[in-house]
Nucleic acid binder design. Structure first.
Lengths: 235, 235
DNA sequence: GATAATGATAATCATTATC
DNA sequence: GATAATGATTATCATTATC
């Protein structure tokens, strides 16, 4: 009976993504392929919440926000989220020699317009509403959006939420990682968790069944903190 | 319609819950006492697995197979699975006064043809291939399949796998319960887990984010025990 | 010129609305 | 049950931009 942790047995697949096509455009530059352990970008997440000194169990990445901050408050400076995401995307693509074209950047912006995951057709409609691009051009077809999304996912800039056929900006871009999502079925907001307890529990359950994990999908529907107060009147 | 979702509770309370409280179905509807605890059918699953005397943490329901048996061996008597599932479905529907019509029964049979989840159009094609029903009749449209699936899910006889838009027979039919799935991306087989450790980890993660869980989707892609030996040559 | 990105068209699959 | 619309995704092939 194999008792070892399936996530250990194949380090390549351990925390998903990390396919060979993670930098499709670069054609395999040797240095670029290495994903930096430390990208050194300081991350100011708005006014103080990090509770310094308290290490939250289950969260190890220094850049990863604590679970209490998984959902952004209604009044947060979302412009900052967008700017931050685009800046990082530029940096990541530049470093890898991946081409963040106008279309791809445009799709990324639409994805980041809020913290609610958007469908491919929402993005398409948006693109075609404004005229496809700031500069104008031909109307786009669905495939255009899907291709852009595929690129963005390969670069680790966007996550796909399988349970709702929708896409959302990655909160920890560029680094391959597994993620769990909490999705509010009231306001639609999604929060990305990186919870080692959940990962461990799934690993153990899978190991007991003799199963080798490739990619776990954990997507939980429910009510976010901001919407919970209204839960009673709403139902 | 299943009256309540076992996950539809206050996540704060999840901290206080013990295994027996959290476990789906265990505190189920009182009238469901008639659900056979032991169907007495000899389930020969090949050589030794149950390790008698060892209580596996995280699994408490007597009817729930131990996690080692989550995947059925290739040579298991699948006719037995089918017969068992249909028998239980009849009993459950009869008890509830729900009508398991020919179409619904037919869809249930197709879903149970293997342990690999099937898409709605697979079912449709199957139905229309043989001539729609054993007795013959008009060709079915997609809506027919969806309506049948909706019924079967409402009765707790079928699960939907959101991450792959597919449907699979429920291994613990008739009782409302949360389930986690392990899906083999080689042979396609899916295994249904009821793992309180996973549930607890998710509950805690959600609670820390202030999130009220309604329904968690846990669907893990990977390799099942039977396919793991061939993993290396395959890739 | 080779490779990658986009465009155009359409097929397929998945789901829901309406009558 | 029948008809049809919509949404989601992929396949194919021609054309264009970029290294």
């Amino acid at each position: 009976m194999p008792a070892h942790d399936p996530w250990d047995h194949n380090p390549e697949a351990a925390f998903l993504l990390r396919d060979s096509d993670i930098h499709p455009g670069a054609g395999g530059p040797p240095e670029d392929a290495s994903i930096p352990r430390d990208h050194g970008l300081p991350h100011d997440h708005g006014p103080g919440k990090s509770t310094p000194g308290v290490i939250d169990p289950g969260v190890t990445d220094p850049e990863d926000p604590s679970p209490e901050d998984a959902f952004h408050p209604r009044d947060h400076d979302h412009g900052h989220c967008i700017a931050d995401a685009l800046l990082k995307a530029e940096a990541i693509c530049a470093r890898r020699g991946a081409r963040l074209t106008r279309i791809r950047r445009s799709v990324l912006e639409f994805v980041w317009e809020s913290h609610s995951p958007v469908g491919a057709y929402d993005i398409l409609d948006r693109m075609n509403a404004d005229g496809p691009l700031p500069g104008g051009g031909p109307r786009s077809a669905p495939i255009t959006v899907y291709r852009a999304l595929e690129f963005l996912m390969a670069q680790g800039l966007v996550h796909r939420l399988a349970s709702m056929n929708a896409y959302t900006g990655c909160g920890l871009p560029g680094t391959p990682h597994g993620a769990h999502f909490l999705i509010c079925d009231d306001c639609g907001a999604a929060a990305e968790l990186h919870d080692t307890d959940i990962e461990r529990a799934i690993s153990r359950g899978a190991a007991r069944a003799g199963f080798a994990i490739k990619s776990p999908v954990v997507e939980v529907q429910g009510r976010c903190p901001a919407c919970r107060p209204f839960q009673d009147e709403a139902e």
